[in-house]
Design a protein around this nucleic acid. Structure first.
Lengths: 238, 238
DNA sequence: CAGTGGTCTAGACCACTGA
DNA sequence: CAGTGGTCTAGACCACTGA
């Protein structure tokens, strides 16, 4: 069997070399690293090639570059991870479990002031409101209280939400372009406790999310999860 | 007053043009976008320049590229945000508030099995343990229960944690290279409730974080926040 | 085969920094 | 001033896809 050497691109070699050095602490945070010219000589490649390696390290937050000064090992004091908006349905199915949605509210209402403002609507303007409880293998996992800007999804109320989640539908009709969220722990409201089959005092993980597409607010959602049944996992890779 | 036109790099112009088109829905998700050669002609720039624009869009997840086939508008069904590990001290000071730390435990212990395993230590091996309550303007905001691998930070117990946070210190002695976290809502333990000055039944936002540096586990922390006083905010930008 | 993207080169001009 | 990074060019060779 012939094992072909998987050709590694020169820019990737330079990049990996620097990454290794950083991982081994060869350059302390803030320390000056080799210049492009030095790397050109050391690796025998063109400047564009080492430039790409360094630029990508900069994008990844591993180095800082200052024109006229040089390249410096980054202070790794800010590390970030990715937190993904996932469709709960997909998440449940991926675990090999059964997803069920119970629609408690699906109607048009008039937006009170606070809501209207957050959705960029006039006071009292029509707004779509759904209240859906999602169950995993028959156990309530999320209470989804959602308001939708009718201008962005005029057919929203015609969707069969026992078959399609609001998240899935909205991602289809309006590509997701921006969102703000807030994660907090709190007791559920009396109604939420009843819908989720938990006690008033049981801690819940609550995500409030506001989504915009092309600058236009689409939807505002309050997702309440029983603390004992749901957690958010994630990873950091600097 | 002379307003100098801030010269926009050609690659940035190409990139912005494509980004605008994507935002306006000019290319549906999955649709074929212009080839490099076409963009070269359209913008009158060299191929390396359009290549950079497209490559950066790919990194940002806005397009997908397949050698031999072309560039396609990305399916925007997975959107992620950045969630930053921040030093609580910095966060509080940034708000213009006063940070105070009360050290309740700072000692060496022997690691029980479960802990030893998560920190890559032998059963019963020495481990550093700190329990610190952080206050913002005198109000308890976080109960930080932390175990540290002595091999990574031998001087950990000599630090004055009323002056330096463990996070800050550990980021200095060991550059942060990887972390897993888990966010959940739950009631505090009796001890945590007492330390935070809240009731046993008050919901707390709990972050459990395990950090590794260069593949070696550094620290395992349980950060308990009163749900009424702390929330995690974030933004998505696809 | 023509068309696609992946990558590299050897040179260039420029803006910026600090001596 | 010399040294730094930011960027561009006009060409090149290659691997890959589908006809």
């Amino acid at each position: 069997m012939v094992v072909s050497t998987p050709r590694v691109a020169p820019y990737a070699r330079v990049k990996q070399h620097l990454k290794d050095g950083l991982a081994r602490g060869r350059w302390a945070p803030g320390a000056l690293m080799p210049s492009e010219a030095e790397l050109v000589v050391q690796f025998g490649v063109s400047r564009m090639t080492v430039n790409r390696a360094l630029r990508e390290l900069q994008t990844e937050g591993l180095v800082e570059r200052v024109q006229g000064l040089g390249t410096f090992a980054a202070q790794l004091h800010k590390v970030s991870s990715t937190l993904t908006i996932r469709d709960l349905h997909e998440e449940i199915v991926e675990r090999g479990h059964r997803h069920e949605a119970r629609v408690h509210v699906a109607r048009q209402e008039r937006a009170p002031a606070a809501l209207a403002q957050r959705l960029g609507l006039a006071n009292g303007a029509p707004v779509f409101h759904t209240l859906i409880v999602h169950l995993e293998n028959g156990v309530p996992l999320q209470c989804e209280d959602r308001y939708v800007n009718p201008a962005c999804a005029p057919d929203y109320l015609n969707v069969d939400f026992t078959q399609t989640t609001p998240t899935h539908y909205l991602l289809e009709v309006a590509p997701l372009w921006e969102a703000q969220y807030c994660i907090e722990a709190s007791a559920p409201t009396a109604e939420e406790a009843k819908l989720l089959g938990i006690k008033r005092g049981d801690a819940c993980l609550i995500v409030v999310r506001r989504t915009e597409s092309r600058g236009v607010p689409i939807t505002l959602a309050r997702l309440v999860h029983p603390g004992s049944r749901y957690q958010i996992d994630g990873q950091f890779k600097p």
